[in-house]
Amino acid sequence: MSGLDKRVGSYAEALAGLTDNMTVLAGGFGLCGIPENLIAEIRRLGVRGLTVVSNNCGVDGFGLGVLLEDRQIRKMIASYVGENALFERQLLNGELEVELTPQGTLAEKLRAGGAGIPAFFTATGYGTPVAEGKEAREFNGRHYILEPAITGDFAIVKGWKADHFGNVIYRHTAQNFNPLVATAGRITVVEVEEIVEPGELDPAHIHTPGIYVDRIIQGSFEKRIEKRTLRA
């Protein structure tokens, strides 16, 4: 086995080292491109007090929503959390803390975190509740606020195909936040539909180069559709 071979044999091995109170970055938009088996494994592990960073928090009974059932999430950083009754109840009870972050700012915080940039200025949110307590500065006559980057202890990612080296490609709009969280985890775990032989993926078409990836596992996916909409 080469030291560059990132494949692991089980989901338990894929998340080895995940403990209470860690920060987990999760890819996906709605239920599209979510690492559904890694989420299920977090549930099985029973770790608690997690800070989870993800655009959304799944739905009742699927995706990150399952981590709410045993109150494993202490704090959620997301842009939109409207699809989940249990989430609402825990938020109103004060059992769950939420930090709402504009979607583009969230994406850039993760990108910056993975790229070694500690913070950045953005016009998004200036003059709104999002700006409260943040440094503001004017550049060329426009107002901007300083937004800190995000990194995590673990990043959990859903890819389409990966090779042994952890080079990953995503399928269609299941890409979304996945390549960003992949760069920002101290340990980045990618589950894919298919592990292929090195050389099968075109090097110019890799979305996430293997340097960001620590562990790769092949899974099977339900891929639940949140809003099935057909042409009339």
């Binding site: 599209c32 850039e108 993760l110 990108r111 709009t173 890409q175 390549p179 979305h207 891929k223 909409t229």
Partner: peptide, 25 residues
């Protein structure tokens, strides 16, 4: 119909000819 093709409203969609797909950043 494809679970991996949705729009920002989370509805299933298609891509037209000449479309491109990329990360949230």
């Amino acid at each position: 119909l494809d679970a991996d093709m949705i729009n920002a409203g989370k509805q299933t969609v298609t891509a037209r000819k000449g479309a491109s797909i990329f990360s949230s950043a």
